[in-house]
Simulated scan of single mutants.
Amino acid sequence: MFFFFAGGLEQQVRQVLKSGAGRCISCGSRADLVGYEKVLKLFFVPVWRSPGKEPAMYCDNCKLFFPQSYSFPPPPQIDPSLPDVLRCRFCNGVVEPDFSFCPFCGSAL
């Protein structure tokens, strides 16, 4: 006798609380602050939903949920009075010439 089980637990966005609240820790794109719920699916049919305990960040680009405390800080404001300096191509933050990675978003320079 064999038993085949097709199911799992996944997270789904319930509502967007604040759009563009931070940056994704994986791809560096905009991430939204969302309320989410955990959904138990059996044979690809949702059978049970449970609300998340606290809001989380969600990246729509790479579909990643992560805690709000892990979010990158917002990029610094651009000061037009600064001379031509090395800037990150992803977040436009000013970086030192000897850096290999951006200290603001973590992307390779």
Rank of each mutant, 00 (worst) to 15 (best):
G93C: 14
G93Y: 05
P46F: 03
G106P: 05
R14H: 12
S26P: 00
C62R: 08
K53F: 02
S107A: 13
V95L: 12
C27H: 07
P67K: 09
V95R: 11
P75C: 08
C27K: 07
P67G: 04
F66G: 01
D84C: 04
S81D: 12
P103D: 03
E96A: 15
C91Q: 09
V34N: 01
C24R: 05
E10Y: 06
V39F: 00
C91H: 10
V47M: 10
R87S: 05
Q15S: 14
K18H: 10
C91K: 06
G20F: 02
G22L: 01
Y36L: 03
V45E: 01
V34I: 09
K63V: 01
A108M: 14
V16H: 02
S29F: 04
P74D: 13
L82H: 10
F2W: 13
E10I: 12
E96Y: 13
D84M: 10
F72K: 15
L82D: 10
V39W: 00
C102F: 11
D79S: 11
F65R: 03
S71W: 04
G20W: 02
M57N: 01
A108N: 10
D32M: 05
V85E: 12
Y36I: 00
M1K: 08
L64D: 06
V39K: 00
E10S: 12
R14C: 00
Y36G: 00
D32I: 04
E10V: 13
E96Q: 15
R49P: 02
P74S: 14
V39D: 00
G7V: 09
E10C: 11
Q12P: 00
F2L: 14
P51A: 09
P97Q: 08
Y58R: 01
A31G: 06
Q15N: 11
G52F: 00
G28K: 06
R23M: 07
A56V: 09
L9P: 01
L86M: 14
P55H: 02
P76F: 13
F4K: 15
V47E: 02
K53N: 09
F3E: 07
A56T: 05
P67D: 11
R23S: 09
Q15C: 04
P55Q: 02
P83D: 03
P51S: 04
F99R: 15
C59N: 03
F5K: 13
Q12Y: 00
G93W: 10
V47F: 11
L17P: 04
P97V: 10
C62T: 10
L42T: 06
Q68F: 07
V45F: 15
E54N: 09
V45I: 15
C88H: 06
K63E: 07
M1I: 12
E37T: 01
P83L: 08
Q77C: 04
L9E: 07
Q68Y: 10
K63D: 05
V94G: 01
P46H: 05
V85G: 03
E96T: 13
S69C: 06
Q15G: 02
